[in-house]
Design a protein around this nucleic acid. Structure first.
Length: 421
DNA sequence: TCTGGGGTCCTAGGACCC
DNA sequence: TCTGGGGTCCTAGGACCC
């Protein structure tokens, strides 16, 4: 039996999250910034209309922001993560067969649901809006790539402006495929679009009509799969259970350039601390740790970039083991005389905690460490994030800028909105 | 002055082994 | 002059996504 998938995608998700608690932001230009208040990562329709691009640096449009009274927010991931979970809970009411694809998108398996799916899609939209305050669009199709394309059509109102699109219908599909430029197809980026252009492929319809062998030649097996998916032949399956992740990364640009070893050591220790928290939250252990640091690619002056990977033996989830390894690794690649703009800690080899080979000699030590980590996590979970932090991470010189952050309305008791009645 | 962060998958090429 | 063939594993780099 043919599959029927729906892609539910939140509109301007971070902006919509801010608006849920600030109705006065409706109808006015709103933007959310990346870490360090650097670039726009979410824009309301009004801000898009002003010509601000995705990823555009704030400093490039300062005048426009002031002139049009753009409401600008630092990113508030505690809020967005919590709102995301609420949307997902809501969607689970429509089908248990659901893949969470990203913080603002899920694929739903609607195979076997009879009747008018456009009506069903409209019901999904209304329910999510009523229960969470977040507006979404629904794209329906027989494969993931077509469901994505369908959602794109719903957002851009290519067929109508109801926020729901069903591409199972052949005429509707043909119309949309011809109207959409090939670089808007999921999986086709700038590089691939350039290569396809040489083959005369300009629209999604052109790509669907391309010989799959040619697609493989130009874009590897990834491109071949996209061609088949556009034809309605499923190559990408639905991941109902999230696969165990393969890497953990904590990387940040600094609020100001770092020229001394001490703040660099603090920053790397803080990133290692956060990476260890992520490890324990997912019951994983790291077999290796990589540290990198580099100077700014945008600023004049001497440049330097380096990275080093060290083995962790035995694999560990212990904050202090990770701090020690990260600091030692960073010391090896540190050079005086440079203005560093960014550093990071990456854990490239992850194993489930229960599969870690126990090191018999250090068993007692490990148990003590585990109890300490449990206590640390428990205190930070109940008393608030960063209530207890390792002394090695306490400095301030390197911390990122976040000058426009909204309150954590849903995840921090002191920030919960008060209703006057 | 000011330019994000965190992921995945695929391929080519080198090291190593029999 | 002339030096096999086939496998696995690992890593770096490219491309893409949100």
């Amino acid at each position: 039996m043919a599959r029927t998938l729906a892609l539910v995608d939140c509109n301007n998700f971070y902006v919509s999250c801010e608006r849920v608690f600030r109705p006065d932001l409706e109808g006015v230009p709103v933007g959310v910034l990346s870490n360090n208040d650097g670039c726009f990562v979410a824009r309301s329709a009004e801000l898009k209309a002003l010509g601000v691009r995705m990823g555009q640096p704030l400093f490039e449009v300062r005048d426009l922001v002031r002139h049009h009274h753009v409401r600008v927010f630092s990113s508030n991931y505690a809020l967005y993560g919590d709102m995301s979970a609420r949307v997902t809970d809501c969607l689970r009411g429509f089908t248990p067969a659901l893949e969470i694809y990203s913080i603002d998108e899920s694929f739903l398996d609607l195979t076997g649901i009879g009747g008018d799916l456009s009506g069903y899609g409209a019901e999904i939209r209304q329910t999510v809006k009523r229960w969470t305050g977040i507006p979404v669009c629904v794209g329906i199709g027989p494969t993931k790539v077509l469901a994505k394309l369908s959602n794109h059509a719903a957002k851009k109102a290519l067929l109508d402006d109801r926020g729901v699109c069903d591409l199972r219908d052949a005429d509707a599909r043909e119309h949309v495929l011809r109207a959409v430029p090939v670089e808007e197809v999921w999986g086709i980026g700038r590089r691939s679009a350039e290569k396809l252009s040489l083959l005369g492929v300009r629209t999604a319809a052109d790509l669907r009509n391309l010989d799959p062998r040619l697609a493989r030649q130009a874009l590897t097996v990834v491109g071949e799969r996209i061609v088949y998916e556009l034809q309605g032949v499923a190559c990408l399956s639905l991941d109902l259970v999230p696969p165990s992740r393969k890497t953990i990364a904590v990387t940040r640009s600094f609020g100001q350039p770092v020229t001394d070893w001490e703040p660099m050591r603090e920053a790397v220790a803080a990133y290692a601390t956060r990476a260890a928290e992520k490890l324990r939250a997912e019951r994983l252990a790291a077999e290796a740790l990589q540290v990198f640091m580099h100077t700014s690619p945008f600023r004049p002056g001497p440049t330097y970039s380096n990275a080093v990977t060290v083995e962790l033996r035995p694999a560990t989830d212990d904050t202090f083991a990770l701090i020690a390894a990260a600091a030692a690794a960073a010391r090896r690649i540190w050079r005086d005389g440079y203005a560093f703009s960014k550093a990071g800690v990456i854990l490239p080899g992850l194993v489930p905690l229960e599969r870690v080979q126990p090191d018999l000699l250090a068993a007692a030590d490990r148990q003590r460490g585990t109890r300490l980590m449990k206590a640390l996590d428990a205190i930070n979970s109940t008393m608030g994030k960063d209530t207890l932090v390792p002394a090695a991470t306490m400095g301030r010189a390197w911390r990122m800028r976040q000058e426009q952050r909204s309150p954590s309305y849903t995840t921090r008791l002191a920030d919960v909105p008060v209703v006057q009645a």
